[in-house]
Design a protein around this nucleic acid. Structure first.
Lengths: 205, 205
DNA sequence: CCTGCTTGTAATCGAATGATTACTCGTGTC
DNA sequence: GACACGAGTAATCATTCGATTACAAGCAGG
């Protein structure tokens, strides 16, 4: 036998940039599942396979990490919107944007992390950042040429999707006829995609 | 002088039922502002002018208190929906329900508390209750005779209102032209009501 | 009046958590 | 091959928080 321990982690050293990216991805997932206050820096550290002090040292504080997480999530959101904006001109722009927004479910925890940020308006540091982030989303839609009514409708649909994801509604999809009805109404064309991408199983945190 | 201390609180004794109601009201406000994990039982105790151990004893645990808070909030929500259902038959039902839902802003923290609950889907105890609560709202709308598309649209608008309230967007209403535009689009008829009732000033918690 | 029940609090405890300190280890460079 | 620097961690600390315990105070009934 080559080693006593069955999995002798080789522990590759990474650049701090690579580690930051790893931790940000893990943090979006964990913050999304447990919220800002409910997530510990150790939760994130274990999800990213580093030590807890290292998370704090790389980002300065848990609060700063959350601010960086918001920036990262918004960056991914605007990137998706950019893809939609330059998509098939035959389809209505709102439909393309909705499709890309649902595709962002591949980024585990993104919608929930944004929802958590949007609920922290009373927080002295996070609140102003969250408000500005939401206002930037609004401005993006308007600059794209959407009229106010269409932009408002698009945001409302997005917030409903966020709610259903945050509720983990997909967990009970085929066990509760009310939820089946609800999903059919909310996702007439993309239901299969949502059910496939929605976080379902309990996280190991 | 009648007393050395300027405000000698008479400290009236109340029945446990009255105290429970007081604490539930305070808890909706504080949970709404700071979330489930971010709120301490002492926050709620001080907001209700009782001691922290008494809050725990009356409700058993913080988790049980939050479950009772969800029940209370949903009870107020369904009561408002009932009022709307038996309102002026000349107006469309969705409009009456929306009006009542905005009127619930008088209950400080209600929308935000429900939003927080709806984001705790991954919580082993709160998650199932939150899912059931949302499904009951859906069923209520459907039983009222709303078709699936209308019910979905109503929920989406409600979730957007919740988000704007949670963000404390009204704080920046007249300081940010993007937010002015956003509010005008979201509340074509009820903007003044929302701005008047939305929680604005920083809570003393 | 006293006795038993309910309302309510002060004191305190143990566990959890964000942050700090003091290290170790590996790697490229002169 | 020393050495300086960046990656990474173990140990630990001070605080905070939910919960428990023990106790005080009001009030109704006999």
């Amino acid at each position: 036998m080559s080693s006593v321990t069955p999995t002798d982690a080789p522990k590759p050293r990474l650049s701090s940039e690579e580690r930051r990216a790893q931790i940000l991805e893990a943090a979006i997932a964990v913050f999304g599942a447990k919220g800002y206050v409910g997530t510990t820096t150790d939760d994130i550290a274990r999800a990213a396979s580093v030590s807890q002090p290292y998370v704090v040292r790389l980002f300065g504080s848990k609060e700063q990490l959350f601010l960086d997480v918001i920036d990262e999530a918004l960056g991914l959101l605007f990137a998706a919107f950019d893809r939609a904006a330059s998509g098939d001109p035959e389809l209505p722009v709102a439909q393309r944007m909705g499709h890309e927004y649902i595709g962002l479910l591949e980024v585990r925890g993104l919608h929930q992390t944004l929802s958590h940020a949007f609920l922290l308006g009373a927080h002295p540091v996070i609140g102003p950042r969250a408000r500005d982030g939401f206002a930037r989303v609004w401005q993006y839609l308007r600059d794209l040429g959407m009229d106010a009514e269409r932009a408002q409708e698009f945001l409302a649909q997005g917030m409903l999707l966020n709610t259903l994801i945050g509720l983990r509604m997909a967990d009970d999809y085929d066990q509760d006829p009310r939820i089946t009805d609800l999903f059919t109404a909310c996702f007439p064309t993309e239901k299969a995609t949502v059910l496939r991408l929605a976080p379902r199983v309990a996280e190991p945190w």
